[in-house]
């Protein structure tokens, strides 16, 4: 099936088996392998991308369902020599070890900060209304959809809070 995806500002038309997940379309058909497959069932978050402004698991949707949709992957954020502030903070705080979950963490963090800026509460928010203070706990809860078996969570939380301007190092 023919599908056109707008990825990182560029339009791609591909002809895929309807069974192709958005994740596999990126990895197998477009050579955008920065988006990782850790479980293929929405249980690890390594495949997180931003779809029409929202972070999602790209493994749990079909490429053909996204004709015309806008997608941002890790390749769209920055590259070595021109990293964005979140990517730089992950390097500085060692918010990774093996690096496999890292693109998903960074995409998730990017989408998450946007959710916070819209005032979305979380499970750990004391109140459902009002501004969200980006405490360590708020970041940890909102990032719990991204597993890291190396367990770089302390660095991940610091990198995100620093990028959000909550703490300075």
């Amino acid at each position: 099936m023919q599908t056109t995806l707008k990825i990182n500002g560029e339009s791609w038309t591909l002809d895929v088996d309807p069974r192709t997940s958005l994740l596999d379309a990126l990895r197998h058909h477009l050579d955008l392998t920065g988006t990782k497959k850790g479980c293929d069932h929405g249980q690890c978050g390594a495949c997180t991308i931003i779809l029409n402004g929202r972070r999602i698991n790209s493994c749990l949707t079909l490429a053909v369902m996204h004709d015309g949709d806008e997608i941002t992957t890790i390749e769209g954020l920055g590259e070595p020599g021109r990293l964005n502030p979140m990517q730089e903070a992950f390097v500085r705080h060692d918010g990774y070890q093996c690096g496999y979950c890292t693109p998903g963490q960074i995409m998730s963090a990017t989408g998450m900060l946007d959710e916070v800026s819209q005032g979305w509460p979380s499970h750990v928010s004391a109140s459902l209304e009002g501004d969200v203070p980006l405490s360590r706990e708020e970041v940890a809860e909102r990032m719990s959809g991204n597993l890291c078996r190396c367990s770089a969570y302390p660095g991940i939380v610091r990198a995100i809070r620093e990028t959000a301007g909550e703490v300075s190092e």
Binding site: G34, E79, P80, V91, Y96, G99, Y100, I106
Partner: peptide
């Protein structure tokens, strides 16, 4: 910082299936 860090945080470090 890890020297390979920029590759990892930008999705450019290639793992075996890639």
């Amino acid at each position: 910082d890890r020297p390979e860090g920029p590759l990892k945080v930008s999705g450019r470090a290639a793992y075996s299936a890639e």
